[in-house]
């Protein structure tokens, strides 16, 4: 259908972003194709050590799912704090990622968790990382005849600790910060820090991630350096949420808080 209708049509799942934009006449489509009618896209399953989440699964379903709570509590906790309950009840994970709104909580956390997006097109299917799916503000790498089928999130091993924190003043978060650490005794062996909302796309920094590896005591001292590297990579923008300077400061505050929360 999408191939047939071309630019006049858009895929639609929860509608919490798309319908709002259409209401404000920012987007115009003659047809909306409801992907919620496609069976199997609304499932949450455990498969080969990964959590498979269909793209029409709502935030509310993720927030309440026993499977998610048990295997990936950080995801359930993040989802609990997405927008408000009305948005969570109709908004979907797939819709959230495909709309690529820069203040997406899920995109930030999923990037840190190493999630992969499953994409189905006319030509066949493929799997891409979140950073390859979301390419800019409101931009994805999806071709006009491609559909995000779902995401696959590897269940973290026992040694991994994760935290997602956000700072929110307005309707959308000012900052989202996800931190996933692989911990071995007093040492962190690998680390992924991702900051979202402060700029167009969720960002990580190889430099910051490497600073976050080593003994816990040493990392604690280096947290300001890691924050600086992360802020430099994210390159926050001045907007109504706050100045770039303030957002860089928030990255410092929340990296420190995420670090202690992840290890607690």
């Amino acid at each position: 259908m999408l191939g047939e209708l071309g630019d006049k049509a858009r895929l639609y799942a929860g509608g919490t972003e798309l319908l709002l934009a259409m209401k404000h006449d920012l987007l115009r489509y003659e047809h909306l194709i409801d992907v919620k009618t496609i069976s199997d896209l609304n499932k949450i399953e455990l498969k080969n050590g990964s959590l498979m989440i269909g793209s029409t699964v709502t935030h509310r379903a993720l927030e309440r799912s026993p499977v998610v709570k048990e295997n990936l509590p950080v995801l359930a906790q993040m989802e609990t704090n997405v927008a408000n309950v009305r948005v969570r009840a109709s908004g979907t994970l797939g819709g959230n990622l495909c709309f690529a709104e820069p203040h997406s909580d899920p995109a930030t956390l999923l990037l840190a968790l190493g999630a992969r997006a499953h994409v189905q097109g006319k030509a066949g299917s493929k799997t891409v990382g979140i950073d390859k799916l979301i390419t800019g503000a409101y931009e994805t790498s999806l071709a006009s005849d491609e559909l995000l089928v779902g995401v696959e999130i590897p269940i973290p091993t026992k040694s991994k600790q994760a935290a997602y924190l956000k700072f929110q003043l307005h309707e959308r978060p000012t900052l989202g910060l996800a931190l996933v650490l692989d911990v071995d005794g007093d040492n962190v062996t690998t680390a992924t820090a991702v900051v979202g909302s402060v700029s167009t796309v969720p960002t990580q920094s190889g430099k910051a991630n490497s600073i976050l590896v080593g003994s816990k005591a040493q990392i604690e001292k280096q947290l300001p350096d890691a924050a600086e590297a992360l802020a430099e990579a994210a390159d926050p923008v001045d907007d109504l949420e706050g100045s770039a300077e303030y957002k860089c400061h928030l990255i410092r505050v929340f990296l420190k808080r995420a670090f202690s929360q992840a290890l607690s």
Binding site: H24, L169, H170, E171
Partner: peptide, 17 residues
């Protein structure tokens, strides 16, 4: 309410807190 130049930039239900 925030003006940037001639335009009210947070004149919407989403942006006005």
């Amino acid at each position: 309410l925030v003006y940037e130049g001639s335009q009210l930039v947070n004149g919407s239900i989403l942006d006005y807190r």
